[in-house]
């Protein structure tokens, strides 16, 4: 079976130790987590983990069932990219020498990046978008000497409805 990228959304109670329990289920099947984020959700006291993994559909189906089996997990879903809107945010630290370079300026502009901060020695570019978009800006800025680069985990809004509030009623 083919390996694919899946985005898993997991709605949980907000408890210490639950993240550990959730990640251990991926670990048990030897699935590497590409990115993970945790945040509040639209429901009070319910948190949402968004986990991106590369694996087979058969494996992710089984993992989702194991996740749902956990006492404090309300519901877990897996999605392919067509079922979700996703964003990641990336930040790039660049030497202040490049700030007025026209090449650099136009690269930032054409990639839809914004300058988030300017300090004495460096400035920070910020870009929100897909993995491919933030990667492209990374490649374009690389020749200017990236002092630091960091990308957040993926967050996702699903196109289909998620039945979380019904489940906890």
């Amino acid at each position: 079976m083919n390996q694919e990228i899946f985005t898993v959304s997991i709605s949980t109670e907000n408890n210490v130790g639950l993240l550990n329990r959730v990640t251990s289920i991926f670990l048990k099947r030897h699935i590497n987590i590409e990115s993970i984020t945790a945040s509040e959700s639209e429901i009070k006291d319910i948190h949402r983990y968004t986990v991106v993994v590369k694996t087979t559909e058969e494996a992710i189906q089984k993992v989702v069932k194991q996740l749902e089996k956990q006492v404090e997990v309300v519901k877990a879903y897996y999605h392919r990219s067509q079922d979700i809107f996703t964003q990641e945010i990336a930040m790039y630290k660049i030497s202040v020498d490049n700030l007025y370079e026209t090449d650099c300026q136009s690269i930032i502009k054409s990639n839809g990046g914004t300058i988030a901060a300017v300090e004495k020695e460096f400035f920070v570019v910020e870009k929100t978008g897909s993995y491919e978009e933030t990667k492209k800006l990374y490649d374009d800025l690389y020749p200017f000497g990236l002092m630091q680069f960091v990308r957040s985990g993926r967050i996702a809004i699903t196109k289909p409805k998620m039945l979380i509030s019904e489940l906890i009623r």
């Binding site: 949980t12 109670e13 006492v71 404090e72 997990v73 309300v74 489940l167 906890i168 009623r169």
Partner: peptide, 8 residues
Amino acid sequence: KCKRIRSY
């Protein structure tokens, strides 16, 4: 006694 846990 516990009779229900909403996520379970």
